[in-house]
Amino acid sequence: MTEREEEDLLRESLRRVQPPDGFADRVMARLPRQPWWSRILLPARRAAWAPALAILLVAFLGAGSWEYAQWRDRRLRAERAHEELVQALEITTEKVQETKARLFRPRPMRGIL
């Protein structure tokens, strides 16, 4: 047998083979039923949705974290101002108390004796 005949024999023997009748129907019967919403979010379009969704998510997270940073900054400034006010009031109260004490301190009586 020549090499050519040998190759022809192999091609002839190892041809594609049709499966038993109804094969495609049996495959289709095993396919999972898709819920209606998955037809809207089609798997084929998942690839197209994915980058847009990722960009949206990153933008949302970015905006959220920027807003949070701003809010935190405002809150810290308010707390600092509050503390300064309390401190100023304490100092003022202290000074008022000192002045009051000096004014009303009992003085020794002079020139009576």
Partner: peptide
């Protein structure tokens, strides 16, 4: 790929 079962059956 977009869920057309007839197209998938044809592919099979």
């Amino acid at each position: 790929a977009s869920g057309d079962r007839d197209a998938f059956a044809a592919l099979v």
